[in-house]
């Protein structure tokens, strides 16, 4: 028996993996739409547009300039993401150049509301919108459990399975969960 959360996650995952459209994109907006099918290899429910990695696509008379920005400088997912962009655009023989931009530097504020919703449904607490706490030993502000919504949670580790997350535990439902840390 699959639990409701697993089913939901699978349905979101499937929605992302819809086949590529037959029609070749004809302008920058359509290229953005097309590239929005590419998901983060570590968090397959969220696409690169929702995550704020895909910054812009512009037509440059002869080719499209696709601007992307890394979340963390050492994030190994960036190589995968760039390869996925190439694969998709090559399928349509679209001329392009990928530009990796570091400035302004990526922030979790760029994750769209839909992106944040999808993270939560997937079991990852989205970055808090509250003031960032700077004092030592005060954790990262109030982080709600993505499963039971309790605010009674505790930081287990500032660093977790990927560079962009930290590890929490819910004191109500006792489940551990990832928190997409503010950056």
């Amino acid at each position: 028996m699959k639990n409701p959360i697993t089913k939901l996650v699978e349905s979101i995952g499937n929605e992302q993996k819809s086949p590529l459209p037959e029609k070749k994109p004809e302008n920058a907006n359509e290229v953005i739409q097309l590239l929005s099918q590419i998901t983060d290899p570590e968090i397959p429910v969220i696409n690169i547009h929702e995550l704020g990695i895909l910054r812009n696509v512009t037509w440059n008379n002869t080719y499209y300039e696709v601007t992307i920005t890394p979340t963390y400088v050492g994030c190994p997912a960036m190589g995968m993401i760039e390869m996925s962009i190439r694969q998709v655009l090559d399928q349509y023989s679209i001329p392009y150049k990928i530009i990796t931009s570091l400035h302004p530097s990526w922030t979790t504020d760029w994750i769209t509301d839909i992106g944040k919703f999808k993270l939560k449904e997937y079991g990852i607490a989205p970055p808090s919108t509250q003031k960032r706490i700077q004092n030592l030993f005060e954790g990262q502000g109030i982080v709600e459990c993505p499963r039971c919504n309790s605010a009674n949670t505790i930081l287990i580790s500032e660093f977790a399975s990927t560079a962009c997350k930290s590890l929490y535990k819910c004191n109500e439902c006792l489940e551990p969960f990832d928190y997409f840390k503010c950056h």
Partner: peptide, 20 residues
């Protein structure tokens, strides 16, 4: 385990920085 992950996460940031 948590601190093993912390140390290697920080390592990754430095290797990424070195690459740039």
């Amino acid at each position: 385990l948590e601190q093993d992950i912390a140390l290697t996460n920080i390592a990754l940031d430095y290797v990424g920085r070195a690459r740039l």
